[in-house]
């Protein structure tokens, strides 16, 4: 078993609310500098910066995880993670068909930049990404599972778009194995109040700026022998799915 420091919720410059300096290569570089081993890129309702992020991760020697922060029809944010990049991209295409397309106003919301290898600008997303999709919270885990992924409620300790703030309680269905906190100081009280004792607690930064990515502090112990990054990632998914 080895300790793997993680951050499973980071936005790149594709998310309008994120800083344009939060490029795939800068994120990977910063994570490596801070000693974080496993990093998931989770832009709002899009996977389009994942290919660049995977290349960047290779350059900087971190283990990338393909992700998305999905906004459900109820305006609840779910972190969706995939073991396989190609499957995540397919998931991204399906989610694209459930988006409500409102033109982005860059002066209000910010730019939505799509980057390629070495952070080369290859395009921008025309329609606003973070607004609610038509995917209900009930339906989301089914769609994610089709692509071998897992999803769980993001920043449940936050007022904006946290599941507890939006719904007022943790629904019995669908069942989530994990919940994410932004601030671990909030965890004990909410776990008790909402009976979350049997859930895995994931603490991630939800970084929108490079400075939001924190010094390594949260880790998962994973059996990684014989070592390969694919093995570590696979073990991570087994952990998140509750198999180990």
């Amino acid at each position: 078993m080895n300790r793997y420091y993680y951050d499973l919720h980071i936005h790149s410059c594709l998310s309008p609310c994120a800083d344009n300096d939060n490029t795939p290569y800068n994120i990977a570089g910063m994570a490596a500098l801070l000693g974080i081993n496993i990093v998931a890129l989770t832009d709002h309702n899009s996977c389009l910066n994942l290919p660049a992020f995977f290349k960047a991760a290779k350059t900087y020697g971190i283990i990338p995880v393909a992700g998305m922060e999905l906004t459900t029809a109820e305006e609840v944010h779910l972190v969706c993670l995939f073991e396989d990049l190609a499957k995540a991209m397919e998931f991204g295409r399906e989610i694209d068909s459930y988006r409500v397309k409102i033109k982005n106003k860059t002066n209000i919301f910010g730019e939505q930049l799509i980057l390629g290898e070495e952070d080369k600008l290859i395009g921008s997303e025309e329609f606003l990404l973070p607004n609610a999709t038509t995917v209900t919270i009930e339906k989301a885990p089914e769609i994610v599972a089709k692509y071998g992924g897992i999803c769980y409620p993001a920043h449940i300790d936050r007022q904006s778009n946290g599941i507890l703030a939006m719904l007022g309680f943790m629904p019995e269905k669908p069942v989530f194995n994990c919940v994410e906190f932004n601030n671990p100081a909030n965890a004990d009280e909410l776990i008790k109040k909402h009976n979350l004792q049997n859930k895995k607690i994931i603490i991630s930064s939800d970084a929108h700026y490079l400075t939001d990515i924190k010094e390594k502090q949260n880790y998962i112990e994973l059996d990684d022998e014989p070592y390969s990054s694919a093995k570590v990632r696979h073990q991570l998914f087994r952990y998140l799915k509750g198999e180990i």
Partner: peptide
């Protein structure tokens, strides 16, 4: 109160 609804 549902922002996406209000937006539309």
């Amino acid at each position: 109160d549902l922002l996406s609804w209000v937006m539309g």
